[in-house]
Structure formats: C-alpha cells, structure tokens
Design a binder for these strands. Structure first.
Length: 107
DNA sequence: AAAGTGACTGACA
DNA sequence: GTGTCAGCCACTT
C-alpha cells in the first residue's frame, strides 16, 4: 500500500471545512490548517489545485488570508466579486472590511 | 538529487 | 501603516 501524499490525504477534510463555511462568513487558511493539524501552506496548495467543478461547487472564495487579506494570485478579482455578491465589504486594498464580524472558526 | 516555487504566517524594522 | 525576513513543507522542474 503506497503512502498517499499529504495533498490527497487532507484534501477531503479541506473540502469539507470549506463547504461548511456559512454564507456571508469567511475563514482563514491558518484557521483551517490548525483545525486539521497541518501547515497553512497545505491548505493554500489544496485550494490552488482545485478542479474546475470543485471551484464551481465549493465556496472557496470564503477562505482568506490572516486579518482578512485576500492573498490569491490567480483569481483574486473573481474572489472579490463573489464576496461582494454575498454582502461582504471588500476594501480597495483587497481586504475584507468586516473581517472580525464575519470570521468563522471551523469546528 | 538539488534548487526553485508558492491562494501562508508571525515577527521585526 | 508598509516592507522584509525566516520558517514552513509538499510539489515541480
């Protein structure tokens, strides 16, 4: 039995955690990472390699960097658009305005 | 095998 | 408030 990569191992948990984020709320890579017991980089890596269908199904845009900063490189424009569509305020510097109030701690 | 890269974070200047 | 640095660890080249 070959040992699965950490990527494949945590992916289901990451997807479940992201899927559990309530609408209008956000969480951070670090928060999810801490819950799953892995490095924040791993969370970022999973989300960065999501398939097209997963991108469409999952609320991946509700995952932001520490302090509510949007750290995406490939799709930050799209992420901002989706967040605003859910009633969240995003500053011109790509930060979630109501981060403290909308932050959601994964279980 | 070795070096480079990254959707991160926290500490420090 | 912004900018750098080091730690981080799996994946890619």
């Amino acid at each position: 039995m070959a040992k699965p990569t950490i990527f494949a191992r945590i992916k289901p948990d990451v997807l479940a955690a992201v899927d559990a984020i309530p609408p209008g709320r956000v969480t951070t890579y670090g928060a999810i990472a801490r819950t799953l017991g892995v490095s924040p980089r791993h969370i970022a890596y999973v989300l960065a390699r999501l398939g097209p269908s997963e991108c469409a199904e999952l609320p991946w845009h509700r995952v932001v960097g520490a302090g509510g900063a949007i750290r995406t490189t490939a799709s930050r424009r799209e992420q901002v658009r989706r967040l605003r569509a859910e009633g969240l305020s995003v500053t011109a510097r790509d930060r979630v305005g109501d981060f403290d109030a909308t932050f959601w701690q994964p279980e």
